[in-house]
Computed example of a mutant assay.
Amino acid sequence: MYVCSKISKLYQGIVAACDKFVPASLRPLWEHPAGPKTIFFWAPAFKWGLVIGGLGDIKRPADKLSVPQITSLAATGLIWSRYSLVIVPKNYSLFAVNVFVAAINTYQLGRAVTHRQLAKK
C-alpha cells in the first residue's frame, strides 16, 4: 500500500508539472473526468495493444488460432463496449478500443471456425 501511495504522489506531481504546459485548446481534454489525469484515459490507451496484437494475428494460419482465447477477447470487447457507455463519466475512448477488440476477434473467430469446419470435410 505504501508503494502505491508513493507512485500516486509521483504521478500527481508529474501531472501538476505538466499542467503549466497544456495549451488552452487542449484544456477541455486535459480537465475531462476521463482525461489524461485519470486511469479512465490510460487503461484504454494501453488496451490498444490487444488490437495491434489481433491485427498481427491476421497473417497467422487459422489452424494456429486459439478459439477459447479469441472467443473470450471478443466477448470482453462486447461487454466492455456496453459498460463504457453506461458508466459516469461516459468513456468514449474505452468504447472505441473495445469495439475494435470485439471486431478483430470476431473476425478471427470466424476464420478459425470456418477453417475447422472445412477441415472436417
Score class of each variant (00 low, 15 high):
residue 48 W to P: 01
residue 66 S to A: 15
residue 54 G to C: 05
residue 61 P to V: 13
residue 84 S to L: 04
residue 55 L to S: 01
residue 60 R to E: 10
residue 46 F to P: 00
residue 69 Q to A: 13
residue 80 W to M: 09
residue 86 V to K: 08
residue 72 S to G: 11
residue 51 V to M: 02
residue 56 G to C: 09
residue 64 K to G: 04
residue 87 I to W: 09
residue 85 L to W: 04
residue 88 V to I: 15
residue 59 K to N: 10
residue 62 A to F: 04
residue 62 A to Q: 06
residue 78 L to S: 02
residue 85 L to G: 09
residue 85 L to E: 01
residue 66 S to L: 12
residue 70 I to T: 06
residue 60 R to M: 10
residue 84 S to N: 00
residue 68 P to W: 15
residue 78 L to F: 09
residue 79 I to F: 06
residue 83 Y to H: 13
residue 63 D to K: 12
residue 72 S to R: 09
residue 73 L to C: 02
residue 63 D to R: 13
residue 57 D to A: 12
residue 68 P to N: 14
residue 69 Q to I: 15
residue 64 K to S: 12
residue 48 W to F: 11
residue 88 V to T: 15
residue 69 Q to S: 13
residue 85 L to Y: 06
residue 65 L to G: 02
residue 70 I to Y: 02
residue 59 K to S: 11
residue 50 L to F: 11
residue 59 K to M: 13
residue 57 D to T: 09
residue 85 L to I: 12
residue 78 L to V: 06
residue 69 Q to K: 12
residue 60 R to D: 08
residue 70 I to G: 05
residue 58 I to E: 00
residue 91 N to S: 15
residue 79 I to D: 02
residue 57 D to K: 12
residue 76 T to M: 08
residue 84 S to W: 01
residue 65 L to R: 04
residue 87 I to T: 12
residue 58 I to M: 08
residue 85 L to S: 08
residue 76 T to Y: 06
residue 90 K to G: 08
residue 74 A to Q: 01
residue 45 A to Q: 05
residue 55 L to R: 00
residue 63 D to Q: 14
residue 54 G to S: 07
residue 85 L to C: 06
residue 46 F to C: 11
residue 54 G to A: 08
residue 59 K to L: 12
residue 70 I to D: 02
residue 90 K to M: 09
residue 61 P to L: 14
residue 65 L to A: 05
residue 74 A to D: 04
residue 55 L to A: 06
residue 77 G to C: 04
residue 86 V to M: 11
residue 82 R to F: 08
residue 90 K to S: 05
residue 61 P to Q: 13
residue 89 P to M: 14
residue 46 F to H: 05
residue 55 L to Y: 04
residue 77 G to N: 02
residue 86 V to F: 03
